[in-house]
Amino acid sequence: MSKQLTSLLIGLVVVLLSAACSGNGGEGEPSSPSQEATAPPFAEAITEITLDNVSQIHYLGRLDQPGTPSTIFAHALSPDGIHLAGLTNDLFIEWNLVSGRRVFTTLRDRAQYVYYTPDKDHLFTIDDRGNLHLYTAALGEEVAAFPAHIRFNGAIAYAPDVGLLAIGGEGGMVRVWDVLAQEKLAEFSAFAVAIETMALTADGELLAVATRDGFVRLWDW
């Protein structure tokens, strides 16, 4: 094969590859990528969601939101694994994971965090002002509301097995609550500055408190 023919064939291959990659009929200008991502179409569950298969990785089904769907930015799983509660932009929703149906839907009311109590019969939320709202898990009825911390800054620790909540604030003050009893068990100054984050041991007896400058204190409150 002559060098001229080889060069011609190579050139033809390059032209064909360029046309194929451009995706615009071979006009020589690259096509612009799509600016919108299309969500996959809705598909019904392959099988009913049950306690036996809820922990499996493969697709089981979809839990729908009423109205326009939005991000679920906080959620909690009930102690028995049957219910899931979530906070969207506007709503507070609980689903039954066995049936896949909604148990209740109510207004979010500025809630930032959601948790279940150890008896699994109640849920509670903490709003951005430090107020605690207690609800029934069966109907979503609010049964109590009280200020858990008046200078709340987002620092929370919860021990779900015993239902103890530690909540911190800007001035370094910590309050510890028995949520179901609606009883404040302790109040103390952990630091003289704002609290960044906290963690409770599983039994709720020890509390680690950290500040933004990296200091940590462990409290046997």
Rank of each mutant, 00 (worst) to 15 (best):
S2A: 04
K3C: 14
L5P: 07
L5H: 02
T6W: 05
L8W: 00
L9Q: 13
I10Y: 01
G11T: 10
G23S: 05
G26N: 06
G28T: 12
G28Q: 12
S31K: 05
P33D: 00
S34I: 10
E36A: 15
P40A: 14
A43T: 02
E44D: 00
A45N: 00
E48M: 15
D52G: 09
V54R: 09
Q56A: 05
I57W: 01
Y59A: 08
G61Q: 08
R62C: 10
L63H: 05
L63V: 11
T68N: 12
P69E: 07
T71W: 00
I72Y: 02
H75P: 14
L77P: 05
G81N: 11
G81Q: 11
G86P: 12
G86S: 11
T88W: 03
T88F: 07
L91D: 07
L91C: 10
L91M: 12
W95I: 08
L97P: 09
V98K: 11
S99F: 10
R101M: 15
T105V: 15
R108H: 07
R110K: 10
Q112T: 15
V114L: 00
P118G: 08
L123Q: 03
L123K: 05
I126G: 03
D128H: 04
R129W: 00
L132Q: 13
H133K: 02
T136L: 12
A137M: 13
A138C: 04
L139N: 10
L139D: 05
G140M: 08
G140Y: 01
E142S: 15
F146T: 08
A148G: 08
A148C: 07
A148M: 05
H149A: 06
F152L: 02
A157N: 07
Y158L: 03
P160M: 02
E170K: 10
G171I: 01
M173E: 00
V176W: 01
V176T: 05
A181H: 00
E183G: 12
K184H: 04
K184W: 01
A186M: 14
E187P: 10
A190M: 04
A190N: 00
A192T: 14
A194R: 04
I195R: 08
T197P: 08
T197G: 06
L200E: 07
L200T: 12
T201C: 11
E205T: 14
A210H: 06
R217F: 12
W219I: 04
